[in-house]
Amino acid sequence: MGLSISFYGSSLVSAYWNGAATYYRGIVKNLARRGHKVTFFEPDAYDRQKHRDMADPDWAKVVVYEATPDGMSRAVEQGRNADVVVKASGVGVFDAELEAAVLSSRRADALAIFWDVDAPATLDRMRNDPLDSFRPLVPAYDAVFTYGGGQPVVDAYAAFGARLCVPVYNAVDPDTHHPVPPDPRFQADLGFVGNRLPDREKRVEEFFLKAASLAPGRQFLLGGAGWGDKPMPGNVRYHGHVYTADHNAFNRSCLAVLNVNRDSMASYGFSPPTRVFEAAGAGACLVTDRWEGIELFLDPGAEVLVADDGAAVAAHLEALTPDKARGIGEAARKRVLSAHTYAHRAAQVEALLAGADLRPSSLRLSA
């Protein structure tokens, strides 16, 4: 028998300033396919509803609530009777209040899960602020799921008293990310999509903009919000926000696409972002900055090209032929379809929830 799940996150229906959208969609859709009923609660904030890139799906009920204290309280009351209540990190509106409210309002026999889609940021924040409101709540949650971080994140959450911490990594949704014909709008030698964020900008400068300056004969394409006033070499074209529906075309139209992790993700390692799996799912040739644990997901040299700096990115690009790029992309796609789909992740989540047997006391911290 399927579980009822109340999921409080940033947004399921809009990827606008919401890097977790692809992850949420993959997890929730595949939980629904396994017979679970998910209601996704999201605030009407940051103009996300004005930039929807999908209608309400048939595999989840979406509840958009007012981004006010009363709106949040009504959403918590509406979702309190579920078998599993999930509070995701980075909702962006009343996060601290939500973290406490879902614990106090849930049924006595229900599970409360904190699902951290940016564990490095959460952990660093708690370390730096002894009065952080989430610190005393960590042991009260029955489990913490994270979308990356590996053993370093598991150990860090254990130090804060987590009963159980398990990484549920990003993956590919083959229904959404797959090969498509190239699109002239996105033709380039190297493409990168990512919003301008403080702990990503310097790495973009090194791995993308510096690489462009070192390969003046190559064409570079930058997608994502916030880069409009950024000085760029003349061979870089800025596209702006790339809607989810265009990600396949973007990935298939460039000779290669670049992944650049944020500083915090790179420092913890074992944190492949959604872009890695989107590119692999589309059969694109991926170049990524180096981070610990990448070989768990893709084989460097055969399924992905790894670079230590912008000069290495430029060297990879100069040596890359269309045939070689196609071979790397096809190998990456085969790898993720065999082991890293959201169907795999949903089965993992279901097994974790079944092991808990809906009795919070049965959850124990993993070794």
Rank of each mutant, 00 (worst) to 15 (best):
V91N: 00
E42F: 02
M54D: 08
A75R: 07
P69F: 04
A82T: 02
F41E: 05
D58N: 14
Q78P: 09
G35R: 00
H36E: 03
A75T: 13
M72Y: 05
R34P: 01
D44M: 03
A75D: 09
V84G: 06
H51W: 08
I27A: 08
G90A: 05
S73V: 07
D56Q: 13
M72T: 04
T68K: 10
V62D: 13
F40H: 01
S89Y: 03
V85L: 14
D56A: 13
I27Q: 12
A75N: 12
D83G: 05
R33Q: 14
M72K: 09
R34E: 07
D58M: 14
G92V: 01
V76W: 06
R48E: 05
R74A: 11
D53M: 10
D70T: 13
G35K: 04
V63R: 08
D53K: 10
A82H: 01
M54Y: 07
G90N: 03
V62S: 12
D44P: 07
H36Q: 01
M54P: 06
R48A: 03
E42P: 02
D53L: 14
G79C: 03
D56E: 12
V86S: 03
K61V: 15
D47L: 09
L31Y: 02
K87T: 03
I27F: 12
V86P: 00
A67N: 09
D58S: 14
W59M: 10
V28E: 05
L31E: 06
R33P: 14
P69Y: 07
D53H: 11
R80W: 02
V76L: 15
G79A: 11
V76G: 11
V86D: 02
G90F: 03
E77V: 12
R52L: 10
L31H: 10
K87V: 02
V85E: 03
G71Q: 09
V28Y: 04
V63I: 14
V28M: 04
V91K: 05
K29T: 07
D56C: 13
A82R: 05
P57C: 12
G92L: 05
V84R: 04
E66R: 15
Q78T: 15
V64F: 01
A45K: 10
A82K: 05
T39E: 00
V62L: 14
D70E: 15
H51I: 08
G71S: 13
W59H: 07
R33C: 11
D58A: 15
E42L: 02
H36Y: 03
S89F: 03
P69E: 09
Q49R: 08
A88N: 09
D70K: 11
N81Y: 04
D44G: 10
V85Q: 02
R33E: 15
D44W: 04
F40D: 01
P69M: 10
P43T: 00
D56N: 13
D44K: 08
P43M: 00
N81L: 09
A67V: 09
N30R: 12
M54W: 11
A88T: 11
D53Y: 08
D47K: 11
F41K: 06
V86A: 06
D58F: 13
A82I: 04
K87G: 05
A60Y: 01
T39H: 00
A32H: 12
M54Q: 13
D53F: 13
V28H: 06
G92R: 05
R34M: 07
D53W: 10
V84A: 07
R80D: 03
